[in-house]
């Protein structure tokens, strides 16, 4: 039984295909066009730049910098406010949206180094934890 299958028995990924677990650690999975090298998250079926149809999965870096952010004060009932949203630029040249945890909302800045963390974000209808990604201020430079 593969690691992914073993983990998925107890954890449900927030979006299948966008994250995987290896040795107890999570990784964001993007797509790279084998023709032109464009990287996406999430990956389309056809490359938007060169229309190539051969895209491969690519592990994305767990670290990046905050491109922009907001503190959401009013949202839909599923979300407890306030929470911080950030767009994070990763070294692969992709921008990923996520919630930022682990610091006061007022401390968030453009350019701030952050790292991706994997946490339970909800429960599925069977009561199993749904694991998704969040960002956290980077622990070291």
């Amino acid at each position: 039984m593969s690691e992914v299958e073993r983990v998925s028995e107890s954890y449900v990924p927030f979006r299948p295909g966008l994250l995987r677990f290896e040795g107890g650690r999570g990784v964001l999975v993007g797509g790279r066009c084998r023709s032109c090298g464009a990287v996406y998250f999430p990956a389309p079926e056809v490359c938007a730049r060169c229309q190539g149809q051969d895209l491969e999965g690519v592990d994305l870096s767990g670290r990046g910098t905050v491109y922009t952010y907001t503190v959401v004060r009013q949202s839909t009932p599923e979300f407890r406010t306030p929470y911080v949203l950030v767009y994070v630029d990763l070294p692969e040249g992709v921008r990923v949206l996520g919630q930022l945890v682990g610091c006061e909302p007022e401390a968030v800045r453009v350019g701030m180094p952050v790292e991706v963390v994997f946490e339970e974000v909800a429960r599925d209808p069977q009561g199993r934890p749904v694991v998704g990604w969040r960002f956290h201020p980077a622990t070291e430079a």
Binding site: F14, R15, T68, Y69, T70, V72, Q74, S75, T76, F79, Y83, L85, Y87, L97, G98, Q99, G132
Partner: peptide
């Protein structure tokens, strides 16, 4: 599903 609202898009 990550919590993006339309005001949040424009705030960012």
């Amino acid at each position: 599903a990550l919590g993006l609202t339309m005001p949040a898009v424009y705030a960012m």
